[in-house]
Deep mutational scan, measured.
Amino acid sequence: MQRVNMIMAESPGLITICLLGYLLSAECTVFLDHENANKILNRPKRYNSGKLEEFVQGNLERECMEEKCSFEEAREVFENTERTTEFWKQYVDGDQCESNPCLNGGSCKDDINSYECWCPFGFEGKNCELDVTCNIKNGRCEQFCKNSADNKVVCSCTEGYRLAENQKSCEPAVPFPCGRVSVSQTSKLTRAETVFPDVDYVNSTEAETILDNITQSTQSFNDFTRVVGGEDAKPGQFPWQVVLNGKVDAFCGGSIVNEKWIVTAAHCVETGVKITVVAGEHNIEETEHTEQKRNVIRIIPHHNYNAAINKYNHDIALLELDEPLVLNSYVTPICIADKEYTNIFLKFGSGYVSGWGRVFHKGRSALVLQYLRVPLVDRATCLRSTKFTIYNNMFCAGFHEGGRDSCQGDSGGPHVTEVEGTSFLTGIISWGEECAMKGKYGIYTKVSRYVNWIKEKTKLT
């Protein structure tokens, strides 16, 4: 034993070699072989497995989906700052455009905790909710729209109204504003409101030439003092309507412009014939205590009207009353817009006519005020429907199939267009061939041609 100890002390290297040989010859039971080890760690190889990531292109799944990435790591994937920024906006807080917040056709661009709407022409605001041009839906104005110097929408209202708090709607500024039905039992019968379409306001006024200088022999019209197929109006439903009495009662109609003036057809009036105007009328054979009678003290036909040349060209006249009318729910003026808007309103496509005229061709006159909704007829169809001249200051309205029309005794009465609950004068009943005849239409004086003249002559002093 002493000898062994001496050998170990003198030859430590020998001992180490012996131990190493023993270990190498022993069977290893701690580690699995290569094949079995792979069965336990069965993990798919990654895209760049075996390579240094710093030297390969980034992978979106590896960089940002398996674990949260930084902007720089995302930049490695896209290799483009702009594309990385677009991805980053949604990656950080989701897609803010998912709810489609942009209105009126706006395009949404996502941002971090926010979004941006790219608005089409005519709109602005956070969600493109603000109209900035009158060309689109009248700028959301209830009545009139004008573009300011910086191309912003400025709404306005006709006389007797003021802008509401929203700067879009119009509200009454006087007790009985024009064009409004205020009798409670008839307010439910107000005709369907007309909503502004998209309009090209630059070209809204037709490029028409008034044929002022045409000389033409007097034409022989049949029954051209021209509501057939209409309905009984309720008291106060058309408070701007008046009836004219002269040699015979209810020979023509008219509309209240203001307390002192009536507008009617020029062919209705004769110099030297006494005319009485009755406002607030409903049943011409009954006294309903809503009527107001006034005498006409002055007749002003349009300066281009000449019955000797043509009885229905420039067929418009103004009547001055001896005493002002007292405005109330049964006696209310009709609204008159400017030339541009009167023309736009007419193009809405349908209007209402009213009167006490004959209820059928050569038949009896109506006792109760009649009204009828009539569609506008395109000019080409209008011209083809008659052998008589249709001037540019006239328009056609009615039904091709016949059966409904204005008729004798309705002449001078109103053709009105309702705009968001307020009625505007767009025409004056003038003439036609018979009444409600198939293929024939009622012919009306186009008020847009005469609004400046009306307003100039009827100013209240």
Rank of each mutant, 00 (worst) to 15 (best):
Q2P: 12
R3P: 09
N5H: 12
M6S: 11
S11C: 12
P12V: 14
P12H: 10
G13Q: 10
L14N: 03
I17D: 02
L20F: 11
G21Y: 13
L23H: 03
T29P: 02
L32T: 11
E35R: 09
I40T: 02
Y47P: 13
N48R: 09
S49C: 04
K51L: 05
K51R: 11
L52M: 15
E54A: 11
L60I: 15
E61W: 07
M65F: 10
K68Q: 14
K68S: 11
K68P: 05
R83V: 13
T85C: 04
V92F: 09
G94A: 11
D95C: 03
Q96R: 08
C102M: 00
G106I: 00
K109M: 07
Y115N: 02
G122M: 04
E129N: 04
L130S: 11
L130T: 12
T133V: 05
Q143G: 00
N151I: 09
N151H: 11
K152R: 12
V154T: 09
E159S: 09
G160Y: 02
A164N: 08
A173V: 12
A173I: 10
C178F: 00
T186G: 09
L189A: 11
V195M: 08
Y201L: 09
A207V: 09
E208N: 11
E208C: 06
L211C: 09
T218Y: 09
G230N: 11
E231N: 14
D232Y: 12
A233W: 08
F238M: 10
Q241L: 14
L244S: 00
G246D: 06
V248R: 13
V248T: 11
D249I: 05
G253F: 05
G254T: 00
I256T: 01
E259Q: 07
T264Y: 00
A265D: 00
A266F: 02
V269I: 13
G272T: 11
K274L: 06
T276L: 05
T276I: 09
E281H: 13
E281Y: 07
E281G: 13
I284N: 08
N295H: 12
I297F: 04
H303C: 04
N304K: 09
N306D: 09
A307F: 09
K311I: 07
Y312L: 08
H314N: 12
I316L: 07
L319M: 15
P324I: 03
V326M: 14
S329Y: 06
V331I: 09
T332Q: 04
K339C: 06
E340C: 03
S350E: 14
Y352W: 06
Y352A: 06
S354C: 09
G355R: 14
G357T: 14
S365V: 13
L372G: 14
V374Q: 05
P375H: 14
D378W: 03
C382H: 02
F388H: 14
N393Y: 05
H400N: 10
C407N: 04
V416M: 12
S423T: 10
T426G: 00
I428N: 01
W431G: 11
G432F: 05
G432S: 11
E433Y: 07
M437C: 09
K438D: 14
Y441T: 07
G442N: 14
I443Q: 03
Y444V: 05
T445L: 12
W453L: 00
W453I: 00
I454R: 00
